[in-house]
Lab assay of single mutants.
Amino acid sequence: MTTFKLIINGKTLKGEITIEAVDAAEKEKIFKQYANDNGIDGEWTYDDATKTFTVTE
Score class of each variant (00 low, 15 high):
K5I: 14
K14D: 11
K27W: 15
D41C: 14
I40L: 08
A35L: 14
T12D: 12
F53N: 02
E28A: 07
V22W: 12
E20V: 14
T12W: 12
E20D: 08
I19G: 10
K51V: 07
L13H: 12
I17K: 01
I19N: 02
V22A: 10
N36Q: 13
A35T: 06
T56N: 05
K51I: 08
I30Q: 05
T2F: 14
K14F: 12
K27N: 13
A49K: 07
F4Q: 02
T54N: 05
M1E: 07
Y34L: 11
G15Y: 15
D47R: 00
K32S: 05
G15R: 14
I17R: 01
Y46K: 00
T12G: 10
D47L: 01
K32V: 06
F31Y: 04
Q33H: 04
T12K: 07
D41H: 11
E28M: 14
D48E: 08
G10D: 01
T3C: 15
E20P: 07
T50W: 01
T56M: 06
E16G: 07
D23T: 09
Y34D: 02
L6P: 02
I30F: 09
T3G: 04
E20G: 07
N36C: 14
T54R: 04
G15L: 15
T56R: 03
L13I: 13
F31R: 00
T45A: 07
D48F: 04
E43H: 10
V55C: 09
A21Y: 10
D47I: 03
T45C: 08
Y34K: 00
D41W: 14
V55E: 04
E43K: 09
K27S: 15
T52H: 05
T54H: 09
K29T: 09
Y34M: 10
T45E: 08
L6C: 14
I17F: 12
W44S: 00
G15P: 05
D23P: 06
T2Q: 08
E43S: 07
Q33S: 04
T2K: 06
N36T: 11
V22K: 10
N9G: 04
L6A: 01
T45I: 06
K32A: 11
L6H: 00
G15F: 15
T3K: 08
E20K: 11
E28K: 04
T18I: 10
E26W: 11
A25V: 11
D23F: 06
A25T: 08
E16T: 07
A24Y: 11
Y46M: 00
I40N: 01
A24G: 13
F53S: 06
D48A: 08
K27M: 15
K29Q: 07
E16H: 04
K5L: 11
D41L: 12
A35W: 07
M1N: 10
T56P: 01
V55I: 12
D37L: 09
T2V: 13
T12I: 12
K29F: 09
A49S: 10
L6F: 13
A21R: 04
F4A: 01
F4E: 03
W44P: 00
K27P: 15
D41T: 13
T50D: 01
T2H: 09
K11T: 15
T50L: 05
D41M: 10
I7Q: 03
D37H: 03
I8S: 01
T50K: 02
T12V: 12
Q33E: 05
V55R: 05
D48S: 06
G10R: 02
K29M: 09
E26R: 04
V22S: 11
I19P: 01
K14P: 09
T56V: 08
F4P: 02
I17Q: 01
D41Q: 13
T50C: 09
K11D: 10
I30C: 12
T56C: 13
T18H: 10
Y34C: 13
A35H: 02
G15T: 14
Q33G: 04
Q33M: 08
K14Q: 12
N38T: 05
E28R: 06
W44M: 04
K11G: 13
E20Y: 14
K14C: 15
K14I: 15
D23Q: 07
G10M: 15
E26I: 07
A24T: 11
F31K: 00
T18Y: 14
I7V: 11
E57I: 14
I8G: 00
I8R: 00
D41E: 11
Y46I: 01
G42Y: 13
K14S: 09
K11Q: 14
I17N: 00
A25W: 10
L6Y: 07
E16S: 06
I7S: 00
N38M: 14
G42M: 05
K11V: 15
G42V: 10
E28I: 14
G15D: 09
A49H: 09
K27E: 09
T45D: 06
T50I: 03
G42C: 13
T56I: 08
F31I: 11
E57S: 07
K32L: 09
T54I: 08
K5V: 13
T52D: 01
N36S: 12
I8A: 00
